[in-house]
């Protein structure tokens, strides 16, 4: 175990970068991206079996030795999300679930009322619930009180690449969290991932920023480096922001010229 272990629901993960697998053009790219990112946990969605599809995402994930995290993507109600989580538990034999309950297809923003309802039900059913939520500190607090194993606020809407639109709210969520905070959604490039970690997030979850990049493998490496850099900076403690300049060279001993 490293000195800076990332522990999620009593499991120590070797990377603070959690990968979504959506958006990759092929399973081969997923495979390459999983390796390049160094991730230890990646998400999948649950859908109808299509017998015509060759190969399984699970084969790739298993081969890489990465833990699988099923999501409830596409669910609009607590009822749908709970049912999807139950199916995922049967299919993948894990009680971990990335809980997504979105309000509409245009924004894909979480519906906090349905989300909290689903979280409470799933915790009661013994799931390890990792909820994708808005950057609302009060909703994050309620999700923790419901027994969620983490809170996963968005930086900006899914797939937009707009980065972290409300860093202050993310800091507020981090400040009072007693479970890991995972920045989920909206990451566009490596500096966004670094910022999330600098703000105090414990991990970053992203998909599109890598899978839809021009060079997914290179971007996966960039994200891993960004997360690492941001984490180090957070632990190192940044200097306070100042209004005016402060020289770093000595102010005494100036020669008379």
């Amino acid at each position: 175990m490293t000195a800076d272990a990332f522990v999620l629901a009593d499991v120590t993960l070797s990377s603070r970068l959690i990968m979504g697998t959506g958006g990759a053009p092929s399973l081969r790219v997923v495979d390459e991206v999983l390796e390049a990112s160094g991730t230890a946990l990646c998400t999948v969605a649950m859908r109808r079996l299509d017998a015509a599809v060759q190969g399984s995402i699970l084969d790739v994930i298993d081969r890489r030795g990465v833990r699988v995290l099923p999501n409830t993507a596409g669910c609009r109600t607590a009822r749908e999300a709970v049912r999807t989580a139950e199916l995922a538990r049967e299919a993948l034999e894990t009680d971990w679930v990335k809980l997504e309950v979105v309000a509409d297809e245009r924004t894909l923003l979480p519906d906090p009322v349905e989300l909290l309802d689903a979280a409470q039900q799933l915790v009661g059913l013994g799931f390890t619930v990792l909820p994708y939520t808005n950057d609302d500190p009060v909703v994050a607090r309620r999700l923790q009180q419901a027994g969620c194993a983490a809170v996963m606020p968005l930086g900006s809407p899914i797939g937009t690449g707009l980065g972290i639109r409300n860093p202050h709210n993310v800091e507020l969520i981090v400040a009072e969290a007693h479970v890991p905070v995972i920045l989920d959604a909206g990451i566009g490039t490596a500096s966004d991932a670094a910022l999330a970690m600098e703000l105090g997030c414990d991990a970053v979850l992203l998909a599109s920023a890598v899978t839809r990049a021009h060079d997914p493998v290179r971007m996966a490496r960039a994200m891993a480096a960004g997360v690492e850099a941001g984490r180090l900076a957070r632990l190192a403690g940044r200097i306070p922001r100042r209004h005016h300049a402060r020289a770093s060279s000595p102010t005494e001993g100036m020669p008379v010229l």
Binding site: G20, G22, T43, A45, R47, L49, I57, A91, K98, L205
Partner: peptide
């Protein structure tokens, strides 16, 4: 109704029943 994994070997299907067969795909 979700059929638990432990019942798959014994759960007998009857004519006309409606089945949803779900699997993991790329996502999230």
């Amino acid at each position: 109704a979700v059929v638990p994994r432990g019942q798959w070997q014994t759960f007998a299907l009857r004519d006309g029943q409606v089945v949803e067969l779900i699997t993991a795909v790329q996502g999230g």
